[in-house]
Design a protein around this nucleic acid. Structure first.
Lengths: 340, 340
DNA sequence: CCAGCTTGTATTATCGCCCATGACTTTGAT
DNA sequence: ATCAAAGTCATGGGCGATAATACAAGCTGG
């Protein structure tokens, strides 16, 4: 802490006015004449006064801070989300308290409690699991403004997110369109996890009348490049290899691509690869990787906007609204039409 | 906000004890008998009581939160730093307020003011510039615990960081050792920016008796892959091309590598490339890229430890201490010894 | 010339919690 | 039985700010 935190009282003593007058003057109240207001403003300046936000929060019952809960930030797409949210909130006068759940449900619950205790005005949450949202629903029902960054239309919680099911559908549909019928998928296969992408994968298959082979699902058990590499290794060790692979995010896709390099397969000739999120590293990989664009700006802007709406709602929270952004498919070399 | 924030008073009313007794009981004071304490604890549980951290902060004059200021988080190495810091602080009972300066000095000053106003107990700052630290030094002199994440031994401010000068020296020295003498460098050439890496580059040259050609410095004007690509383009358009390139971070290095692919140059045969930070994408690039390891765990752990020391210092801040971590060089294919 | 209105400032209460003080009760030693 | 030493709880003040209310002056007008 600074040695001598200047308080309103210090300005009051110096100028001879009362604490209250000083407070009013600094907040541009019309009840204070220009003359006094100016003298007080000058004194504050001279003393280098900074209002104590904590005290203000206590009386106003709002902290002008929101809590941001992410699973882990190492996924480049989530990183951008974090930064964009911080900036969007900052321009609106809010600060952001930040915490990672480290993909652990108990930890997620804990940080939410911490945020509540710290009286955040609202929370933006990227939950660990899309199926275990009871604790968050309870929060909402208790009147807390919350917006999720992943969407489950019937979770009863506001959400703004890219439509992952639809994005995955587009990616896999694209692979089918260019002639593939044996398509591997690298995605976390946790029953309580995010099933949207697998749903999209399945839907595209069904629509095309292709049987879904669960053998073609490889769980990378993580999200790093190297996890993608080993998941690809498993897929390509099958008796009948897939001719194309859909990876749930670009890090995994880059790992898969890396595997093809090491094993002298050509992409897209021997195997096509498509990712998700459209991070810069995918665009500039050895073979530019097709991907599904994660609309960072749009998601964050809408999510922040919605959260502030909830916070400002005069009487109770309005009915939850889920906004799903239909993502764009970016086609690059890794899924260029097959030559044969 | 939750509809009915439970206060100590509510528990007091329910149990018949006074607010004070409740407060003491919940804080495990030995002055309250087990029996009473238990009944109060149960009532708190039943009412789902959560202490109001804001009120507590006002009384205790500490918020148990620290402010983290980063330039921008899109550099994957900084991302990891952010997450590691959050986790390290979390286990010690601190929350982290997070803000990006967006590489703008005025913005950096602004967020620091905001943090001060919010009474953070201390700050961790990755400053925009290594040369404009006056505002931060003033902070320290006013008694604020601050630890920088970049180091200038004579800035008069505590710091924990990787020794970028030394890391760059090692990288360039390595290039010289394997036979290169015309070495390009892709690094921001802002006079007020981070000069450490260029210093290391220069030192390695001088030690080897090689003249430094300032023509070989390309400013990418940013940190993305594509910026690295264009900086590389400029370097390789010179009448006499460099035979090796040192990039100030791995994103830039990956961009440079990408340029060689598009222009059919072989790495390391035609041109060697080395990066900085050792992010996962460098390891798994088309040609695995040599890099200087950014010791995320060590930097964050030491920085947090030091900051908490400063916060706990009983009488005034101790003399500033700068800890520079000597980074390890990771050699990969992109700088394998030249065949000729 | 005083009721009745502005106008400018001071007083007091409040936010939720912690701390110092001390009153009252119980226990144990003499 | 008396008194000191613990033990147990309530009271009041304060953290730094805002908000509601009160209170002096200075005007106006009938």
């Amino acid at each position: 802490m600074g040695k001598s935190p200047i308080r309103l009282k210090d300005i009051a003593d110096r100028t001879g006015f009362s604490v209250n007058t000083v407070s009013l003057a600094l907040r541009q109240s019309p009840r204070i004449p220009e003359e006094t207001s100016l003298r007080i403003r000058e004194a504050a300046e001279a003393l280098n006064y900074l209002p104590n936000h904590v005290a203000k929060s206590l009386v106003n019952r709002e902290t002008k801070t929101i809590g941001l809960v992410l699973t882990d930030i190492t996924n480049p797409a989530l990183t951008q989300v974090a930064q964009a949210i911080e900036m969007a909130l900052s321009t609106r006068g809010y600060s952001t308290l930040f915490a990672t759940s480290n993909n652990d449900l108990e930890e997620e619950k804990r940080v939410i409690e911490v945020f509540r205790s710290r009286q955040v005005d609202g929370m933006l949450i990227y939950p660990r699991s899309h199926r275990e949202l009871a604790h968050i629903r309870r929060l909402r029902q208790a009147g807390y403004p919350v917006v999720l960054l992943v969407g489950d239309p019937d979770a009863g919680i506001d959400a703004v997110c890219v439509d992952e099911r639809r994005g995955a559908y587009r990616a896999v549909r694209h692979l089918i369109d260019i002639g593939h019928s044996r398509i591997g998928i690298i995605d976390t296969s946790n029953a309580k996890g995010n099933l949207e992408k697998r749903d999209g994968y399945t839907q595209a298959h069904q629509e095309a009348g292709i049987l879904v082979d669960m053998e073609l699902l490889a769980d990378p058990l993580g999200n790093s490049v190297i996890r993608g590499y080993w998941a690809m290794d498993r897929l390509m060790s099958m008796p009948v290899r897939p001719t194309a692979v859909f990876a749930a995010n670009d890090s995994l896709a880059i790992g898969a691509l890396r595997w093809t390099q090491k094993n002298n397969l050509r992409v897209p000739k021997d195997v096509a690869i498509i990712g998700f999120d459209n991070i810069e590293f995918a665009e500039h990989a050895a073979t530019p990787i097709s991907s599904v664009k994660y609309e960072v700006e749009m998601v964050t802007e809408l999510a922040v906007e919605r959260l502030l709406q909830l916070i400002a709602a005069p009487d109770g929270l309005p009915k939850p609204r889920v906004t799903m952004i239909d993502p764009e498919l970016i086609v690059r070399d890794s899924t260029a039409g097959r030559g044969d």
